[in-house]
Design a protein around this nucleic acid. Structure first.
Lengths: 141, 141
DNA sequence: AAGCAATTCTTAGCGCAGCTAATAGAGGGG
DNA sequence: CCCCTCTATTAGCTGCGCTAAGAATTGCTT
């Protein structure tokens, strides 16, 4: 495919992404976890305990930003933060059980509205979308 | 398709969207327009002059939020804001020529990295993605 | 005509997330 | 032992989201 066509796809993806997150954010207003916290928590749940620097890198965010996100998670009892015994400059951040539980609920809420929209599509469209997502995930990895 | 399958797609979409915007944000750090401003400006360029309420609705944002986004655009000379003659409570917000010019550059920067990633995909994958985006845009509309 | 209610936008003030710069605390090498 | 490096936090700025409250304009009603 030529550059213009690729650009068109990229542009469409970008605006669709913005719109999706707008929708998700709107549905988040009632008691959910904010997007950055949810995302960080999800990384902790998936990859296990991490240091601050590792978590910040995973989320492509600077250390001070992640420090405050973690602070929020800890305050809400969704994660723990303790000095690492081997090297006490480092911090071992881990998801709590409560964190893992709320993770499921949070994603559910955020993703729910999206799923409803997908449900209205024709079957062939749903399949096309599934395939597109698959490709997209590979492209981003 | 059943609920679980749809949920899987929605979940994949959501996380892909988060990741794309992280990438875009990272590439934005050098002199660009912020995502909300860029998006609002793009609506103005596409749909022509709008009132504040219309623009806020288009961006799924409350009026005060949009008021400040517009304030930033006006301060940077990317949009104009003038009372509407017919009903002077309303405000007519329009993109300036400079705004339209910067729009191209801003989108280019944000979308550029994405396009590079798409370029590495196989042709069939690119086509699948194009189709997926098409469907997605319909689903979100 | 005067006043009142509705509409439209802005202002005020709060929380969260991003950043850089500066600080604090722990480890390690001279 | 002192200094330098590494890791994380604190301080302080910008910007975006919200709600609540204010100001300006319009138009309806009396």
């Amino acid at each position: 495919m030529n550059d213009d066509q690729l650009h068109l796809i990229a542009s469409g993806l970008h605006s669709a992404a913005s719109q999706m997150l707008r929708i998700a954010r709107r549905d988040d207003r009632d008691g959910g976890i904010s997007a950055p916290r949810l995302s960080a928590l999800s990384v902790l749940a998936f990859r296990g305990p991490l240091s601050l620097a590792e978590l910040a890198a995973a989320e492509e965010v600077k250390a001070p930003t992640m420090s405050r996100i973690v602070e929020g998670l800890v305050k809400d009892g969704l994660a723990t933060r303790q000095a690492e015994p081997a090297n006490r400059r480092k911090v071992r951040i881990a998801a709590t059980d409560e964190g893992r539980r709320r993770l499921a609920g949070g994603r559910e809420r955020r993703v729910g509205a999206l799923r409803e929209r997908l449900r209205r599509l024709a079957d062939s469209e749903q399949r096309a979308l599934a395939r597109g997502v698959e490709v997209l995930e590979r492209a981003l990895r």
